[in-house]
């Protein structure tokens, strides 16, 4: 296991970017794919996309982010790659349905974003799990699923 204890910099930092560019040619850049929720953790057991087992153990003042570089030497770099969440788009039938949908999503502690007349729910688990929870609103016609993005 490789213990990663510091964020060395960001992939867009000029010096680091040059190093990553060189390493990329030789296949030396490994990525740790994390959900947005997981980037809040300071300790994390993970594997890179090349199978390297890593133990991330950061100080509380440091933060994981997309592009955070956790290892960099002449042969290898390890970079955090954020798996962007998918969003489930929902269209409420009317104002009353919108109120009910908003209340329901809040009660479920779902992360949402507003887009005019639509509400988008961040899918932090399987899509079907969310549809099961929303089934009563879909069945009653209060909301309509408008697709993912």
């Amino acid at each position: 296991m490789l213990r990663l204890t510091r964020v060395l910099g960001h992939a867009t930092d000029p010096l680091i970017a040059e190093s990553l560019h060189q390493l990329e040619h030789g296949g030396g850049v490994e990525r740790i794919r994390l959900s947005r929720a997981d980037t809040a953790r300071k300790r994390l057991h993970a594997f890179t996309d090349r199978g390297t087992e890593v133990g991330i153990m950061l100080d509380r003042t440091e933060a994981l982010a997309n592009g955070a570089v956790l290892w960099l030497d002449d042969a290898r770099a390890i970079v955090v790659a954020l798996d962007e969440p998918q969003w489930l788009g929902l269209a409420p039938r009317d104002a009353a349905a919108a109120l009910e949908l908003g209340y329901f999503c809040g009660n479920m502690h779902w992360k949402v974003r507003f887009a005019g007349e639509y509400l988008h729910v961040s899918l932090e688990g399987p899509r079907d799990d969310y549809l099961v929870r929303l089934a009563h609103l879909v069945k009653s016609g209060a909301i309509r699923v408008i697709g993912d993005e």
């Binding site: 204890t5 510091r6 153990m57 509380r60 956790l70 290892w71």
Partner: peptide
């Protein structure tokens, strides 16, 4: 992480 600079949290 780096023998020269790594510190435990």
């Amino acid at each position: 992480q780096s023998s020269a600079t790594a510190v435990r949290p």
